[in-house]
């Protein structure tokens, strides 16, 4: 066990998966010599050499498009898109090809591809560097969408994504890249994709959250628990698609109250899908409407004013209290 940041933990997964399997390779802008703009790919070029660590030209569609070809040719590419805001240039390849190849060929050819991308706010960079667009990918049948929240979950889920036979969009909350450390086992570890994690046990209300929202959620939950003597369950979603409906429905049945915290804009996001699931399977167990605490339906403001637009501890705390008091 070592205490690691998320960057170090993801890096550990890449090293171990490339050691374990010769067919794993990494490609993207600045991932080799520069070791990634966040240094996530540190040491890979030195250890594995150029054919398996590729500094590509600057073109997101071709990074994903050529990676699809590599996957069809028997490799397991891990493509890095430098920021998720640029990944939409590759959406044509993801929706049009990566997600469809298995269906298109009746199962003859799958695309075991991982597309890693840092997402979300918090690094004071330019426009297109702060968005949370997981819903766009999650809407596409054939893609899996994974968002880790901590170093250990990032490492274990990335290893699982690399071993997965289907394309996985792996969204890394860059605000959490170096914000805190966690014990990460030295031995290779995977987690099941499609399975949420109970980050905190509780019986009076359940909060669902993922990615960088987990930390303010936990802070708000602690405040409410302390102030009111209640116990609150925190579900760390980890996989957006396929959604772990079972864990969500069980939480409603056991607590009767649910709050969903998402960094993405309010409308048409995962929170809405979670509420639809509760509506379908646990409506009569609800003691209060399921509340969404999200960003607003505006284009993510530039970094000087972005912070106020993301859900913070205060908004989350209020939302939880309103739901408890309903």
């Amino acid at each position: 066990m070592a205490r690691m940041t998320m960057v170090q933990a993801i890096n550990l997964a890449l090293h171990q998966e490339m050691e374990r399997d010769d067919s794993v390779l990494v490609l993207g802008q600045d991932v080799g010599v520069n070791e990634g703009v966040f240094r996530v790919t540190a040491g890979l070029l030195a250890k594995f050499g150029e054919p398996r660590v590729i500094d590509t030209p600057l073109a997101e569609s071709a990074i994903v498009g050529t990676a699809i070809g590599m996957a069809l040719g028997g490799l397991r590419p891990v493509a890095e898109i430098q920021f998720s805001g640029f990944a939409l240039l590759a959406l044509g390849q993801l929706e049009g090809n990566a997600a469809r190849y298995r269906s298109r060929t009746c199962g003859q050819r799958g695309v075991p591809l991982v597309v890693r991308m840092p997402y979300g706010g918090g690094v004071r960079a330019l426009e297109h560097h702060s968005e949370s667009r997981e819903a766009i990918f999650a809407h596409v049948p054939g893609l899996k969408v994974v968002i880790p929240s901590t170093p250990r979950t990032a490492r274990a889920l990335l290893a699982a994504a690399i071993r997965d036979p289907d394309p996985v969009i792996f969204m890394e909350p860059k605000k959490s890249y170096r914000a805190f450390r966690e014990e990460v086992p030295e031995e290779p570890e995977t987690m099941e994709i499609g399975r949420a994690r109970i980050a905190r046990e509780g019986n009076d209300l359940a909060v669902v959250s993922w990615g960088a929202m987990l930390r303010p959620t936990l802070a708000a939950v602690e405040q409410v628990e302390e102030a009111r003597g209640v116990s609150i369950r925190v579900i760390d979603l980890l996989t957006i698609s396929p959604l772990d409906r079972e864990t969500l429905v069980r939480a409603v049945k056991e607590t009767g109250r649910m709050v969903v915290v998402q960094e993405a804009p309010l409308s048409f996001g995962p929170a809405s899908e979670i509420i639809a699931t509760v509506n379908d399977e646990a409506l009569l167990w609800l003691e209060a409407p399921v509340k969404r605490i999200a960003s607003w339906d505006v284009n993510t403001p530039y970094f000087a004013r972005e912070e106020a637009f993301f859900p913070g501890v205060e908004r989350i705390r209020k939302g939880i209290e309103e739901t408890l008091d309903f």
Binding site: G65, I68, G69, M70, L72, G73, G74, Q93, T105, Q108
Partner: peptide, 29 residues
Amino acid sequence: NVFPEEARTLPIAVILASQVPHAVGLAYA
């Protein structure tokens, strides 16, 4: 779109030009 493996042929592409980067990745592989 299910071809004999020995034909070594990818399916017909409908999004025009989207198959061209696949060819490059396949060649790299």
